[in-house]
Design a protein around this nucleic acid. Structure first.
Lengths: 189, 189, 189, 189
DNA sequence: GGCTAATCGAGACGGTACGTCCCGTCTTTAG
DNA sequence: CTAAAGACGGGACGTACCGTCTCGATTAGCC
């Protein structure tokens, strides 16, 4: 029977080391040492360090909660706020490194990839906000919400990979290009 | 064997191994052995395996040329052709692995990241086609071409990371959402 | 499964594994698995694998009975027969390995050492034959039987350790050197 | 090209650890650490810890030199001196442990076995003394010197394994049984 | 055209981490 | 309520590469 103490120790140790040193400095040996756990205990339950990170993501031990957008009723403003929040994280070296580390983990571990997409481009993210806008008839119903969300998240990922900073203006331009025509900008009335 | 021969041997060996085994199975020791080159010779010229891959990308030894879109005059058709070509590569395990390997390389090596963005989302890609469309007044001039290109490329990257296949319909929906309103749909005839 | 059954299961499993793989491939984990017994059950009754082997020896589960010499009345012939029997075992890889395994076990476990000496150089072995010869006045009474037995057994052990085969001629020479002068049996002349 | 510094560091570290902790506490990892050498360097040149010990023996880094007997002309006295010297070593726990460690090493590594036999029962030992006696016609020429040497050494080995102390009297009795009749020198009558 | 310095291949070096096997102890569960 | 099953923290195994460091053996280009 599995020991919950060991499981938690491994996950928190992993989250800590991941934040401190990044994905490719992460070491199963290091995790076991930090968690005061035998290496075999790690290998018994996880096939790879990617799998551990995936579980950390699932438990919310890695990604900050800031990534969920507000909902003030003004879709564009909410979008800008959301983008700005993300930027505030990505402006710091630490934030970029964390995202890139996640991307690296995702590249070699399917589960991490799925969770990353969930976190950035699915229900947990701006897509939810978009959907609520659609429900409130602020956005034309034929807008492919999920695809748009992915496009926005994809932009962020690509920028993180190329180390190209995104300016707020860029974000605004993108939003307008993508949505301006599709939602009655200033609520009609 | 003189320097330039060695350089080429290293690059082709790297490209071959990269395609065969992927980025994280790539080792400098393996590259040197395959290239029949001393390890020191590799270290003399490249600081890391990421740098070698970046140079391979630059020399076109890694990414297929298929990624450049056609230009038939019909923007939407060209887009669909481009997407379809990319999909045909990504449908195969090998293609997905290659892209993910590139992403992993990009995550830990800035140069690779830049080149990847160049290849997918800049002049070498659909963005060029978009620009030519803009030049021909097929697209309204205030459309932020680069951002759109990144959004499209970002979608592809995110899908590769999450192992979520993209269906052509998805691509069409996205294109329409992003551009339909912005270019006089089917050219006025 | 109740205690005595477990005890026997452990001992027979140990003897089998010992014969199959030798002393240093022997593991408590392997014994427990083979015996279908919990590891704890093994540790409850024996402090080490050496102790288990010692008990196997005691139960006669390990050493073949061939090691007891015949008694035909002709001391030298009996000796040669005994030596030859031992050789026939030691000629095979398996036999040498078994003896060396026993020696290894003896080196790290006193009990095994004692039993090994008992089996090779004490009452259970040629010493008994020597003693019967002494009783029958075939050997001068001041011959130190035990010491001679040890010398003979020691030779065998040393040969097993050095992987130097013993030829029958060698054995005969040794016997003559050690005993010829001391027992009148050999036709006087 | 092999580094002699590394080789020596490994051998002296091994000899030290062997003497301190015995054969089965000896660890390749420990040797490498003590020698300040990479583990791979050890594995590159030696297949097992037994092989390292064998080489230590060859270099005289392990066995004390005391094991060579004197040559005063009096064979029996020299023998007793030799035996006594060995006993003085074997009386101490350390000495017995060392011998048993050597035996354990010999049991699993042929080279060690050969060297052990060389050291105890061949030219390096009392056999040489015996041979010089034979050369000086102090011992009848048909005495099988090597076999006798092995018998004596074998006794010592067996006693070490069984933890049975050897008293000097035992040694004398053995010597007399084996050689008294065969060398005319002493008993001039 | 001969000398010398740089560069080459080869690969050993001190290390770090890998993933596996057992150790001896501790905990759970099924009979 | 006992014993099998097996998870636990730990230590060592033997392997793969890391990045640095000699090695001789070619060159190459400057005298």
């Amino acid at each position: 029977m599995r020991s919950d103490a060991a499981r938690l120790a491994v996950l928190t140790a992993t989250a800590a080391l991941f934040e401190e040193r990044g994905y490719d400095q992460l070491t199963i040996e290091g995790i076991a040492a930090r968690a005061q756990v035998g290496k075999q205990t790690v290998y018994r339950w996880w096939p790879s360090k990617g799998a551990i990170i995936a579980e950390c993501l699932l438990e919310g031990l890695v990604l900050p909660e800031t990534f969920t957008p507000p909902d003030t009723g003004d879709l564009r403003a909410d979008f800008m706020t959301w983008v700005e929040r993300i930027f505030r994280v990505l402006e710091q070296q630490r934030g970029q490194d964390l995202l890139r580390s996640l991307i690296a983990a995702a590249a070699e571990h399917p589960d991490v990839g799925r969770r990353l997409r969930d976190a950035l481009a699915a229900e947990a993210s701006f897509v939810r906000r978009l959907r609520s806008a659609a429900d409130a008839d602020q956005v034309s119903p034929d807008v492919p919400l999920l695809e748009l969300g992915e496009a926005l998240a994809g932009t962020i990922v690509l920028r993180a990979l190329s180390r190209e900073p995104i300016e707020p203006a860029t974000a605004g331009r993108l939003f307008d290009a993508v949505l301006a025509a599709r939602h009655p900008l200033d609520p009609p009335r």
